[in-house]
Amino acid sequence: MSSRNQERGVAREGATETEVIAACESLVREYTRGSGGGWFGSGSLPTVRALDGVSLSVRRGEIVGIEGPSGSGKSTLLHLLAALDTPTAGELRVAGEDVRRLSERGRAKLRLEHVGLVFQRFHLLPALSARANVALPLVELGWSKRQRRERATSLLADVGLGERATHRPGQLSGGEQQRVAIARALATEPDLLIADEPTGELDTATGRQVLDLFEDLGEDHAIVLASHDQPTLAIADRVISLRDGRVQGADR
């Protein structure tokens, strides 16, 4: 645990019980393998259990790391926490909403207002400038052009890219693109920030800069980040290890 984490941990222990942003209980996610037999299909298809009884809660101001080998269920858990998917069984609440009960539209609204996502491959829109990319979620929120512009400019300045606002993703380095993606994830002031291998495409130095950003953000947000990378997981307050869809052992 880094020294900054230790400071944050001390502060948290001193505080009264902090707000639970995301919580799941006995979470199960099964996928059906194959495409079915059409009209005359034989019916039962083999299922794969990607998550098997995972329980977890994430509080504001906490960074939770998720580690595990490929196929362990990391991405599945992140997708469920981001309300991109719904569980087969178990309880899942994000920002007070029962995800299982939400329609697709309701889940989109939940993501828009409460969840920010950062991907390994940035997923920026290549035709748009850095500022337009950051302002993208605010389009769906119905903010005015002036408001969007001001907010995006401010966020880009916060992540150290104030001078690169008009550059397109293709004109930015990997680290800069990831910082734009983080700024975009923060645009709607989400309660929960989810990052999937945020340093996976970056060199060590650039990855460190991005992790510093996450550490700074950890004060006000609940952060869940999945990674294979130990230095990345080192910024987490606790790390959950997944194997075959189950939580292994105690939190680190």
Binding site: E104, A108, L110, L112, E113, F119, H123, L125, L136, P137
Partner: peptide
């Protein structure tokens, strides 16, 4: 599709 998927993750409704 990547862009459309990204918009979905950002919370853009299917209608949008």
């Amino acid at each position: 599709r990547a862009t459309l998927g990204t918009l979905a993750t950002l919370g853009f409704a299917s209608r949008s």
